[in-house]
Design a protein around this nucleic acid. Structure first.
Length: 550
RNA sequence: GGCCCCUUGGUCAAGCGGUUAAGACAUCGCCCUUUCACGGCGGAGACAUGGGUUCGAUUCCCGUAGGGGUCACCA
């Protein structure tokens, strides 16, 4: 019995690896072009970290003329959920991060290096596992879960490292005949890597983000093919990223500690290893402690959360880009109108430590992003959001022509309004502009300085009868409010009032506030002149009268 | 516990042996001839800690503390 015969016994039908090496030739890309991928598992809610990785990958591949592909890592069938792949694809689409290659639905893919779904690549992994066995670099292991548990218990008692390595690897040194015999007898087994590493030797790794990191060599005989015939992550990573021509592996830094294993695997199987970039984890503040954003506990971990909240995906992307390269912020301020694609992203400028995901800052980014939208865009996006989450808003917006005017207030000028951070803010921001809402509601008018009913009515009356004219331009309109103020004993200028407070009842600002509150039911609104223009004469009069009669 | 990573204001962060230690968000004050949202100006606020190395350390080295990750037939 030799290695070849053992390999044939275990994988009788597996092809030679030369078949796959020819089928998936090295990519022919121009110098400097990078190939990156995002490789999520279809386990449910898409994690915001996946979006983060995809953002980085698209930036880098677009900048270098490379390829960005999506690979589905579904080798753990227990954790898989139905429709998981579709969710991932849709999430990437939502954020406008569509891959050049990869799965396009649950079963099909585009690109020459597929399948891009690991469970569909079983024969490929087995061919390479067979090759490893032929080389004497992998072997069948017959340890049962109980045996493994026993080994662990002994190791813990002896206070040594746990794991399947060295003298603890009890099936590693079985003779080939013994192995064959057990297999023929039907004893269950899995395939393990036969590590030649030594824990007392160091390997050096240069990570694009983390820099130089030294580790002890890997000496664990890790499982490469599980009992269901599918590979573990480690083996799939090595085979796939080799075959698919990945040049830079970006992944969360929870993977950093398996770099020694992966490098060793690449070397032993005879592939050139990719470069690695381990990205810092997105953290959140949990009662004063930082911790990883968790899919289970934190709603904001789900990529879908932002859509539900009505935060534009572009805002999320800009925020993430901010975390990735802090110079983005400065660049953005100087390049307000151009696409995020034009920003020159640098992997090696990423921070090495994890960043707290800051919703407040996201909010700010989002306000700026939305402030650049036209009224039409705000309308379309709000409507799209409302149709899913807020019927009342749909109802309001269905008066399109009017809504466009409302949303257009103080928009599109040099200093656009920045009061909407998410589409769910829209309703509250504009609801008072709709007569069918405003006129039928009981309004608590929050008058400020001037708050006696009689005085208020005097102002409103005089304004309606003598001063209000819907055709006035802004200057005249305001001059009239000043005159009205003067007529009733209020200072026409605030400064004037401050200089001689005893001479006046109050000032023009206070009078304006009365009008504002009467008109809108609130003290804080956008520019009152524009509001009155949008409302139109009938509505203005109606509203002032309603306030009077309250 | 072993191994590995990290540590600049409340948060994100520039910095890469000599700086008045940038900037953004948040916060506070003032201004922007009516509020708000903007915008402008300004304030408060930081190099975890102890040793080295050096003429000089936020920056380099070592220790300590704190935080994080990882040690599966999960990824």
């Amino acid at each position: 019995m030799n290695y070849k015969e053992l390999a044939d016994l275990i994988f009788p039908d597996a092809k030679e690896i030369s078949y796959y090496e020819e089928k998936y030739p090295r990519r022919n890309l121009k110098e400097g072009a990078e190939v990156l991928r995002v490789a999520p598992s279809p386990t449910g809610n898409v994690h915001i970290g996946t979006i983060y990785q995809a953002l980085i990958a698209t930036k880098l591949t677009k900048q270098t003329g490379g390829v960005f592909f999506l690979r589905i890592e579904d080798t753990d069938q227990k954790r898989e959920i139905e429709g998981g792949i579709t969710q991932i694809i849709n999430a990437l689409k939502e954020f406008d991060l569509e891959p050049d290659e990869g799965m396009i639905n649950e079963l099909e893919s585009k690109g020459e290096y597929g399948p891009y779904r690991q469970s569909l690549r079983k024969d490929i992994y087995q061919a390479y596992a067979k090759y490893m066995i032929e080389q004497g670099k992998a072997y069948p292991c017959f340890a049962t879960p109980e045996e493994l548990e026993e080994i662990r218990a002994k190791q813990e008692a002896a206070k040594v490292r746990t794991g399947y390595y060295g003298v603890w690897a009890k099936y590693r040194n079985l003779s080939l005949e013994e192995m064959a015999e057990k297999i023929k007898a039907g004893v269950p087994y899995i395939i393990r890597f036969k590590s030649n590493g030594r824990e007392d030797r160091k390997i050096k790794h240069k990570d694009i983000i983390k820099g130089n990191v030294d580790f002890p060599e890997n000496d664990q005989d890790v499982v490469i093919i599980k009992s269901d015939g599918l590979p573990t992550y480690h083996f799939a990573h090595v085979v796939d990223d080799h075959l698919m021509g990945t040049t830079i592996v970006t992944r969360g830094d929870e993977w950093l500690s398996s770099v020694p294993l992966h490098l060793q695997l690449f070397q032993e199987i005879g592939f050139k290893a990719p470069r690695y970039a381990h990205t810092p984890t997105l953290l959140k503040n949990d009662n004063g402690n930082k911790r990883k954003i968790s899919k289970r506990k934190d709603p904001e971990a789900a990529a879908s959360y932002y859509k539900e909240q009505g935060i534009p995906s572009l805002a999320v992307k800009e925020y993430l880009m901010n975390i990735a390269n802090s110079s983005f912020e400065n660049w953005r301020r100087q390049n307000k109108e151009v696409s995020i694609d034009d920003f020159d992203f640098q992997l090696n400028k990423m921070s090495v430590s994890g960043a707290l995901f800051d919703m407040v800052k996201l909010n700010d980014v989002s306000k700026i992003v939305i402030s650049r939208y036209t009224a039409q865009e705000v309308y379309d996006e709000s409507m799209k959001w409302a149709q899913k989450y807020d019927n009342e808003l749909v109802e309001m917006l269905s008066n399109k022509e009017y809504s466009l005017k409302v949303l257009g207030i103080e928009r599109g000028n040099v200093k656009p309004r920045k009061d909407i951070a998410k589409w769910s803010d829209v309703k509250e921001n504009i609801i008072y502009m709709y007569d069918e809402k405003f006129m039928n509601e009981k309004i608590d008018y929050p008058y400020q300085t001037i708050n006696e009913k009689e005085e208020i009515n005097k102002i409103l009356d005089l304004y309606i009868k003598k001063y209000y004219n819907e055709n006035d331009d802004k200057q005249i309109w305001f001059d009239k409010i000043k005159e009205l103020s003067g007529e009733l004993g209020y200072a026409k200028e605030v400064k004037e009032f401050k200089a001689n407070p005893e001479m006046y009842k109050a000032h023009v600002g206070d009078v304006s506030t009365v009008l504002r509150v009467a008109l809108t039911g609130r003290t804080n609104t956008p520019d009152m002149y524009e509001i009155m223009q949008v409302l139109g004469k009938d509505s203005v009069i109606k509203r002032l009268k309603k306030a009077k009669n309250c």
